[in-house]
Nucleic acid binder design. Structure first.
Lengths: 340, 340
DNA sequence: CTGAAAGCGCTTACAG
DNA sequence: CTGAAAGCGCTTACAG
């Protein structure tokens, strides 16, 4: 009952060649039923675990994809938004025989260093999760490894990406707010370089014009890093006459934080201020009132992401793919017509 | 500027042997400064990425550790508690040159199948995160791969584990509650097989006796799967005279959910009911009132976990390690003396 | 300081 | 259906 560590030992016990063992183990079909059964029996009895290095060396692939986070590992893990994406991403990769390797690279500490699993050649491709800055992505891209941007992207870089249609989402929100009677709307996002924030802003601006709102009364507040700074700017805005009656936050986290700030200052939601978020995170149903938001098909995003990078690994030279998943508004309690 | 894929090519360009290239790349010091520089220059220019399969095959190790979740991948990712643990776990493994591979194995679907990365021999060891049932762990353990139980464990199984001292935590809570004047306390945990829940219950029971409380007035409610069922049982309990005035939930998530249920039924926290959680999750400060809970050194847990499994990989035959991290009570707003 | 050679475990094209 | 052999890229003990 001793552990067996190579097909050579199996071959000896089964009285055949290692080629036959390999064929049997890989279901190549060119093995007689008798020997096949014998081989499997031996493997089971001796708890044989194949050596993936041998296989990978020969087949010139790792069957592993690296997962990188921006700005850091924990920033993603503590973000419920990604849980569903990760789940279907993982399941799909798994179904194709691939595993996922985590990168702990903290870009805020070390913006230029490529991740270790890449320097060591452990992965066949890399999936990017989070709002990576352009520089980081193009550095990574220049290494020639298959790359996929998930839930985000960078303009003008031929990197595969799967995201939600944030442009349309903003349009839908503004359209809905206008129907409710709002004419003055503010869009807010942190100042990090982030295509999602920009795309959503662009959709917002376009809709503002389309619906004949006054752009000066519908500002974008993006030049802040901490939410508290953003809220300062919002307060300045609200102190004016003709201030906004509705607020769109770039994601639920920001929207929820701002809602709490407003409520602390005695501003009621939705009576005094309508608030919309993005992502439909679990956060957004925990608040009082529950947050209206944009639903993104997270499961589908993970699935398509996996398929996209797998395709890229198989065929590195095809033109690049850019997928926008449709979105849907979720109406809850943080919206109301504006007060007169 | 073409990509180079092996040290053979580097050797040719640098006019030396592959042994010298290998030594240079691994900082073995047995290489003249001149050649060394030449080799590094070539690697840089041609974007050389070593082939980890070749290295791993030769060195008989993967420098990869698998991470398994119970019951499933997404159950962990959507649980903020693990974010901090994962962060320091990742950082420590990374510092030792190890990477972490995710397992998508869903034990609820497939309770007996070992994870694919293990069947394929991709990992040097496995870290278990979550309340794995005994059977699953002993199955895994029987494969002989280094194993580490993190944040949880299974009784009577010689598997390394790093957990928090839940026994002492319960003792501390009860002691504190008694000081506040409580004499009737209820402990609640889901019915899943879970050593943490059992250890915390044991500490609770011991403290109940130690402080001379009436065990019949200090029940454990553990026979429920859904929180709503647990709350049903709690309601029955509270309907009695001499009902509990304080509640200990096995973790913050349960404590928060129960708090919301109670509040929905008009029971005030902490005036009518004192509530304690476990873990000090971010959840626990988001509620009204903020939850009193037990702080666990998540960063240290990840760090020690990494070091423990690394040690085990290095030396598979030493006696097994069991580490209990000390805990600390966090007093917030969900506690008060009982009403008379 | 440097190189030739062996060998890690595996898959695969080829011959029989 | 089966096997002998080559070779994937690397590290390391050994000889010089």
């Amino acid at each position: 009952m001793q552990r067996i560590t190579s097909i050579k030992e199996i071959a000896k016990l089964a009285n055949c060649s290692i080629a036959t063992v390999s064929n049997a183990l890989n279901n190549k079909g060119r093995v007689s039923q008798e020997i096949r059964e014998k081989i499997f029996e031996i493997c089971k009895q001796h708890g044989y675990l194949p050596n993936s290095a041998g296989r990978n060396l020969r087949r010139r692939q790792n069957e592993i994809v690296g997962l990188m986070f921006y700005p850091s590992c924990s920033a993603i893990f503590s973000n419920v938004f990604y849980a569903k994406i990760m789940e279907s991403l993982e399941a799909t990769m798994e179904a194709h025989g691939y595993d996922i390797l985590l990168s702990g690279t903290d870009f805020l500490k070390n913006p230029t260093e490529p991740p270790r699993f890449m320097r060591q050649g452990k992965v066949d491709g890399i999936i990017l999760l989070g709002g990576f800055p352009q520089k980081a992505v193009s550095d990574l891209h220049s290494f020639g490894l298959p790359l996929l941007f998930l839930d985000n992207h960078v303009e003008n870089l031929p990197v595969d990406n799967v995201t939600s249609d944030g442009f349309n989402a903003s349009e839908l929100i503004v359209e809905h707010l206008v129907k409710l009677g709002h004419r003055r709307i503010v869009y807010m996002a942190h100042s990090h370089e982030d295509a999602n924030a920009s795309v959503r802003e662009a959709g917002f601006l376009k809709a503002v014009i389309k619906h004949g709102l006054n752009p000066e009364e519908c500002p974008s507040l993006r030049d802040f890093y901490h939410t508290s700074d953003g809220y300062e700017r919002l307060r300045e805005l609200l102190a004016k006459s003709n201030a906004a009656t509705a607020l769109i936050g770039v994601n639920d986290t920001l929207a929820v934080e701002l809602m709490e700030c407003l409520q602390d200052d005695g501003i009621r939601v939705p009576e005094d201020m309508t608030i919309f978020g993005f992502n439909d995170d679990t956060d957004s149903v925990r608040t009082t009132p529950k947050l209206s938001t944009v639903r993104i098909e997270k499961g589908k995003m993970g699935l398509l992401g996996a398929e996209t990078i797998l395709k890229r690994i198989e065929d590195p030279d095809t033109g690049y793919t850019s997928i926008r998943l449709p979105v849907e508004l979720v109406h809850r309690e943080s919206e109301a017509p504006p007060r007169l």
